[in-house]
Structures are given as structure tokens and as C-alpha cells.
Simulated assay, not measured.
Amino acid sequence: MAVSCSSPSSELNPVIKSDVSFSVGTYLIPHPKKVDKGGEDAFFVSNYNGGVVAVADGVSGWAEEDVDPSLFPRELMTNASNFVGDEEVNYDPQILIRKAHAATSSTGSATVIVAMLEKNGILKIANVGDCGLRVIRNGNVILSTSPQEHYFDCPFQLSSERVGQTYLDAAVSNVELIEGDTIVVGSDGLFDNVFDHEIVSTIVGHRNVAEAAKALANLASNHALDSNFDSPYSLEARSRGFEPPLWKKILGMKLTGGKLDDITVIVGEVSGSCLKYKPLRNDAV
């Protein structure tokens, strides 16, 4: 899908700030054992206002209850997409999460992040759980969301059950973006396997947002499959006191390796024109 439109130019009068929006690329790689059903992540991209991006990561534990973990996040993202322009939402990602959650009837649960860009450059973010977002400016990460968790590997999550988090538990933040900034949004399959400095170098090395999203997803996938890679996930596990399997311990080896998971990556570059969407993988929820 490509959307074309015109926007005010500031070339003749640099004092006038033109409207900003996203050029967006996406890529999704399912867990190796979940390829047949497309994984349990879901996402959507909208060109409403300056642009809206969102990711939901289904909680795989529901499979033990004979529930498809992909249904809840997919319905949640479909509902969020439908409510983007709702008057009650009023461009507030926390309210968008509330309405989408209330309208979701599937059994299950999911972590979720929503980022909404106003045309004045203000990016509004609401996050429940361990999906994440980075803002990159001039080769540096200037904003990084923090995961919310009950304990290691147990993130906050929206749920179909009464026990669980709600939109009120979302971590909310705002940041003013300028033309040339890049945002990277993804499920924990990205951030558990790729360090921030790798994200920055990948973004710097790919001017095309679709290719950047693909490169980041492939990097995360390669790290996840590498039992010797000292990933962000293994570093965090060691810091929490987790130890390697006994055979590794006997050999004096430390706990290493990536984390196999669904990997969703959205890369958005801030520009002065309307959103142009360049999907490389399934973009429908």
C-alpha cells in the first residue's frame, strides 16, 4: 500500500515547520516452530494523522490450555486499527489500548505497544509489557522504552481474564521528533536478541526503511539461533541469577545464546510528507 499526498514545504521559509509523518517498513519472522500459522505476533500500521504503529505479542502459554495464542493479539490489533480515528480516542494511545482491549473477545493475552505521531512532531507512546521502541537521532538512541514485568520472562500483559493488566498499567511517554529521526518498534523477539548499538548500526547502514526492517529481523533471527551469542536475553538472565545447563557448567561455560521467538520489526523514518508504507511481509492482522 502506498499513500500519496502533499504537505506544506519549509524550503522557502525554514522558520515554518512543515507537518511530519512516517515512512514505514515492516518485517515479521515467526518462531521456527510456528511458521505454519504465521507466529503469534500481530501488528498494524496506519497513515492516520502523522502515522500510527502498534505491535502485540501473544502469550504462548495459552497453548497449554488448547487456546491458539495468536487469536487474542490479532483481534486486539484489528480493533486498535478500527478505533484509530475514534473521537473518544482523541489521539491518545492509552485510550486506544483501552477501547481495543474492551472490544476483544478472543481468549488469550498479549503484550502491546502503540505509538502515535502527531503532525506537529509529538510521538505519543503507550506500552504494556515487553514490546519496545527506540528513537534514533544522528546515530544515537535518544529514547528507549523499558519493559514492564512481574519477574524475569513474565511481562505485564493485557488479558481476556479478569486477572491481568489494563490500559491504566501502560507506561506512557512523549517525545518530540524531527525530520530524519528513526523509530524502531518491535516485539521482544527483536530486543531480546539485538543490542541497541546493533540496531543503530543497522539503521545507519540501510537508508530504505523496508530493507532496514528486514535486516533487523534477520539479525535477530540469526542471533536467536546462535547458542554461543551473548545476547541481551542471556545477559539479563545471568544478572538475575540464572545458570547454564549442568553440562555447560561442568565445562566452565556460561549461560549464552539468543532466545527463539516470533520477531516483529517496524522501522519508521520521520519525514515532511505523508506516510508511505512499504511492507515486505504480511501487514494485515
Rank of each mutant, 00 (worst) to 15 (best):
I142N: 13
L255R: 04
T111A: 09
S159W: 01
I250A: 10
V135H: 03
H206T: 09
A103N: 10
D192R: 09
S221I: 08
G129V: 00
G61E: 02
S271R: 12
F43G: 00
G205K: 14
T78Q: 11
H150Y: 15
L251F: 05
D261E: 04
R162N: 10
N120W: 07
K214P: 09
D92C: 14
A42F: 01
A170N: 02
T145V: 05
F229T: 12
S6E: 15
V267F: 01
E87P: 12
G61W: 04
E176P: 02
V52G: 05
G61T: 07
M1I: 10
L96Q: 03
A103M: 12
V84E: 08
V35H: 08
K37Q: 10
D57S: 01
I199W: 02
E161D: 12
L260P: 03
E243L: 15
I203K: 12
S46G: 07
K99M: 14
M1A: 14
T107D: 12
G268Q: 10
A42I: 01
W247S: 15
P69M: 03
G272Q: 13
W247L: 12
L133E: 04
N82K: 12
G85C: 10
T145G: 06
L71I: 10
K17G: 14
V15W: 13
T182H: 10
S18T: 13
F83Q: 09
I113N: 00
N13D: 14
M77F: 00
I136E: 11
A42Q: 00
V265P: 04
T166P: 05
R162E: 11
D192C: 09
P93H: 02
H101G: 00
W247K: 11
F195N: 14
M77K: 00
S273D: 13
L190A: 09
I250V: 14
K276L: 06
A171M: 09
M77W: 01
I113A: 00
D181E: 05
P30V: 11
R74L: 01
D261I: 06
E64V: 05
V112E: 00
